[in-house]
Design a protein around this nucleic acid. Structure first.
Lengths: 213, 213
DNA sequence: TGTACAACCTACGGCGTCGTAGGTTACGGT
DNA sequence: ACCGTAACCTACGACGCCGTAGGTTGTACA
């Protein structure tokens, strides 16, 4: 996508500052990890796309794992930030709506990151036994849900189950939507909320969002 | 798990018939793919676990892709078979129930296959652009759902969206349940159905299954 | 103008894996 | 008892990738 700036007809050998190069490498790494996964990406390729040789990458990140770790960390950060920032509504349904919208916005604007996060696996990097990045997210949702359950007097021990269900729902739908890109984000969100909130037996035919866009 | 039969104290060099060896290699391959993924598994390892050398694997399957293809194909077959076989109920809710139960039964009894199917990716093997094995399954669900939508007079073009949502829901919940192994299959199924059918706003506190076990 | 450091390079060694060439051994049939 | 074939083996060559040792060049600043 973003080609290294060239001067005139010949490719200029530009020399960057440390920070610049670092950011550039992260961008490229994100793109490659999203497209080919962790194993399918080589350090050499990252370096090549940056117009630079391997040792530069090692200098900055110590290896492929280093690049991956930073990319993932940042991506999780922004994802959680966007969703958490959309959780200030009062009514649970409004929370659901804005959360769904926020997540789809993340999918749209950071699709590479989303691809990485959903692809996940990469064998045992998390603390517990259950690796998956998506499940890390689900366990965040779990807290929100547990609070809601408590307020309603439901069995809180079931929060994990419902959290996984909800996250799985929007995660796979997000992946699908990323490919087909239709209908619009708002419509998808409306239907996701429709299903999650009303269930199949009370589906509305023309679900609409009520919150701020 | 299943150790090649030994005679007495020394490991006997058993010579198998083609079919036997083939099946054994598939079993081992399934296990390894489930545990370490496609890229993380080497032909040598498959052969070693079978107490055999590499060329045997190449003789039978032509390479790693060959083994993977057969394993995946069979697994998809059984999965779809089990779910499709549970779809003979009349009332949509009963369909949902037995489908959920069937799927969880698959997760329980063929957990290795389930791990492979959910891990998926493995870059572009399917026909279309959207690779994911799980999405192949979702597109099957799509048909069932479309028929149901038509009967209810809903917009059929939305079937894909809801299919993805439902499949994503049970897929991620299945992964989670595979790790924690609690509560029981029936309870999980009951809650899945509870969410999918009633939605968050009409959740029942003590959901129960009504169909045959 | 020269010098010190940051940015960058070429080159190599090592490892794991794939896939194949060509030879060896068990075993059932006659 | 022998023989043909199916099952199996021991190499081997090639490739891609990781990670590092040690040298080179641009550039800011005195």
């Amino acid at each position: 996508m973003v080609v290294v700036s060239e001067q005139g007809s010949r490719a200029q050998k530009r020399r960057m500052t440390g920070r610049q190069r670092r950011e550039q490498l992260l961008d490229i790494g994100r793109g490659l990890f999203a497209e080919r996964g962790f194993d399918g990406t080589s350090v050499e390729e990252i370096a090549a796309q940056a117009g630079v040789s391997k040792p530069v990458v090692y200098e900055h990140f110590g290896g492929k794992d280093g690049v991956y770790a930073v990319v993932v960390d940042r991506e999780m950060q922004t994802l959680l930030g966007m969703v958490a920032g959309a959780l200030h509504a009062d009514h649970p349904r409004d929370k659901l709506e804005s959360a769904a919208l926020a997540l789809l916005r993340y999918v749209e604007e950071h699709s590479e990151g989303f691809r990485i996060v959903t692809r996940d696996s990469h064998a045992a990097s998390g603390t517990g036994s259950f690796a998956s990045l998506i499940s890390d997210i689900a366990s965040q949702v779990e807290h929100v849900l547990a609070a809601e359950f408590r307020a309603r007097g439901y069995d809180m021990s079931l929060a994990p189950l419902y959290a996984q269900s909800l996250v799985g729902m929007v995660a796979l739908t997000g992946q699908w939507w990323l490919e087909v890109r239709t209908p619009s984000r708002e419509v998808v969100a409306a239907h996701l909320v429709n299903l999650a909130w009303n269930g199949l037996s009370h589906l509305e035919e023309q679900p609409a969002l009520g919150a701020d866009s």
